[in-house]
Design a protein around this nucleic acid. Structure first.
Lengths: 112, 112
DNA sequence: CTCTTAATCAACCAAACAGTTGATCAATGG
DNA sequence: CCATTGATCAACTGTTTGGTTGATTAAGAG
């Protein structure tokens, strides 16, 4: 995943309205009006939020008559967790090594 | 994890400089100057980036003489993946159900 | 105390963002 | 054709962000 795509994906999730949309979409595709319903903002603003999600690669859209249903791309979410986990696991493995060094592990570093 | 904390955490990761800092910190604690070294921006700007990460709860800081080493909080990263995975898994389980319904799985839906 | 190093505070600026209103486009139904 | 519904485009506005420069604090080192 390129830097730019990561920029846009994390930025997209940095907004509570867009996260709520992701939560809603996890349960199934929805139209702009359906996604707008829980929020006290104009439909145009909702449309912009969806475009942000789309440009971030987190959702895709199709056409069904006048409707433009939004579809969550689970694979894109997976790429985000992959980025985070990559560094999380490195950090955690460092902690484990430190624990072993300091702790009661059966090791050749054992004093006396 | 509260909405505000999620806002700040995802926003913090939406910047390539801050992500590079996270990558660097996964390999061990570092000072502001060490974190600044790879980038062509002033130390003040770097300091602000670190404050963003700190305010997002992704890093903590201690004191060692004049130095203020930055430490990556792996647990905070884990909370982010937990949020994403929550909805990713819901979406994926929906796909699996649809596959079973349509596909060749050994199921009681089997036709004829 | 004075000097150096590490880092932050404060004020400022240009660019980007989130929302609004008003007009417009696209697809369908009568 | 005309009206309706779903959604977007365009222009504008207040606020936030990412960076700068210059001054300042904090902790040692000589």
């Amino acid at each position: 995943m390129e830097q730019d795509a990561l920029d846009r994906a994390f930025m997209a999730l940095a907004d509570p309205i867009r996260r709520a949309m992701v939560a809603r979409l996890s349960r199934g595709d929805a139209t702009v009006n359906e996604l707008a319903e829980p929020f006290a903002i104009t439909k145009q603003a909702v449309s912009k939020h969806i475009q942000v999600l789309e440009h971030a690669g987190l959702v895709t859209r199709s056409r069904d008559a006048q409707r433009r249903p939004v579809h969550l791309d689970a694979a894109a979410l997976e790429r985000l967790t992959a980025w985070i986990d990559r560094y999380r696991l490195i950090a955690e493995s460092r902690f484990r090594q430190l624990d072993e060094l300091l702790g009661a592990g059966p090791s050749e570093h054992e004093p006396s």
